[in-house]
Design a protein around this nucleic acid. Structure first.
Length: 268
DNA sequence: ACCCAGGAAATTC
DNA sequence: GAATTTCATGGG
C-alpha cells in the first residue's frame, strides 16, 4: 500500500518518540508494527509512505492511524510563532506526528508507563501482547482485548513483570469490559470531564489520563506533564503557561518532550 | 548499597 | 488537605 504526497512524516521520529511502544526498527531501516490487529512494515521514500503487508481494504484505517489528513505544516507555523524555543524544538524533529492509537492500548500502555522507563515499558507491553494477545502470524500478536485481561488475576500477569501495576491493568480492563468506562464516549467529553472519567480507574491519575487523551483519543489540547516535561518547561519555558500553546498544545508537548529526551545534558 | 524511571495510591502529619 | 512513603522491576 502506498500513500502519495506525504509531508511532515518521519517514521523514526514518530514511532520512537515515546508515544507508542509496538513498532520495531528493522535492519533495513523500515518499521514493523501491529495496529488494530493488522501487521505492516512501514517506510518513507521521498513523499511516499509505503506499507508493506497492509491490506488495501484497510487503507482508511492506516490513513487515520498516521493522521495523514491533518496539516502539520500549518500547525508548525502556528506553534513556531508562539515561542522561538518551540520553533526550535519543532524544527529539531519536523516529522513527528501524533498517532491515532487504539484507546484501550494507550490506556494500558500508559498505566504501565508510571514510575518506569521507556525501554522497560516497551518490554512489558511486548510480553503482554505475546502472553495474552491473539496471534496474527508467526511471532506477531494483537494487543490483548479488555475482555481477555479483565478475566485475569494479578498473578496471571506475573510473566509480564510489571509489578505493582498488575492490579491497575486488571481494574482498567474490567471497567472497559463491563462498560463502566466507555472510551469512545469519553472522546466526546469536555477535557476536564474526560480526565475526571479516566481517573476513576485505579492507577490512572492526571498524567496518565492526559496521555490516554492525547495518544489514544487524539485530544490535541492534552499536555501530559511527566518528569521530563517538568524539567524541560522549567529550563526552556520558565515564563510560559501551557495555555499559551493553544489548541495544539499536545503536538507542542511532543516536540518538547522529544527535544528534551535527546538533550538530557540541558538539565544537569 | 544507592538512585532513578513518561506516577499514583496509601499513609502520615 | 498537604507532604511523605510505598509500590515491583531493572539498569546505571
Amino acid at each position: 500500500m502506498v500513500f502519495e504526497h506525504i509531508t511532515d512524516l518521519d517514521l523514526k521520529e514518530t514511532l520512537d518518540c515515546g508515544q507508542c511502544f509496538r513498532w520495531r526498527e528493522q535492519k533495513d531501516g523500515s518499521f514493523t508494527g501491529v495496529v488494530r490487529g493488522k501487521v505492516a512494515s512501514a517506510r518513507v521514500e521521498g513523499d511516499r509512505l509505503i506499507l508493506d503487508g497492509a491490506n488495501e481494504d484497510d487503507r482508511a484505517m492506516w490513513r487515520d492511524y498516521f493522521d495523514l489528513d491533518l496539516d502539520y505544516s500549518a500547525i508548525k507555523r502556528e506553534l513556531s510563532a508562539i515561542h522561538p524555543v518551540l520553533s526550535d524544538a519543532a524544527a529539531y524533529a519536523p516529522g513527528i506526528r501524533i498517532l491515532r492509537q487504539e484507546p484501550f492500548e494507550a490506556l494500558i500502555s500508559f498505566i504501565i508507563s508510571q514510575n518506569n522507563n521507556i525501554k522497560r515499558i516497551t518490554g512489558i507491553v511486548q510480553r503482554l501482547c505475546e502472553s495474552f494477545g491473539e496471534q496474527i502470524s508467526d511471532g506477531r500478536y494483537a494487543f490483548p482485548t479488555a475482555e481477555r485481561l479483565a478475566a485475569l488475576t494479578p498473578d496471571d500477569l506475573s510473566p509480564i513483570r510489571a509489578g505493582f501495576r498488575h492490579r491497575y491493568i486488571i481494574d482498567a480492563a474490567q471497567k472497559v469490559a463491563d462498560g463502566t468506562i466507555d472510551l469512545e464516549a469519553i472522546r466526546q467529553l469536555p477535557y476536564n470531564e474526560a480526565r475526571e472519567a479516566l481517573t476513576q480507574i485505579t492507577g490512572v491519575g492526571i498524567k496518565v489520563a492526559d496521555c490516554v487523551l492525547l495518544y489514544g483519543l487524539h485530544r490535541l489540547d492534552g499536555f501530559p506533564m511527566d518528569v521530563w516535561m517538568k524539567r524541560a518547561m522549567a529550563a526552556l519555558f520558565p515564563d510560559t503557561e501551557i495555555s499559551a500553546f493553544g489548541e495544539y498544545a499536545g503536538i507542542a508537548q511532543q516536540y518538547i518532550f522529544h527535544y528534551a529526551r535527546m538533550h538530557p545534558e540541558l538539565f544537569l
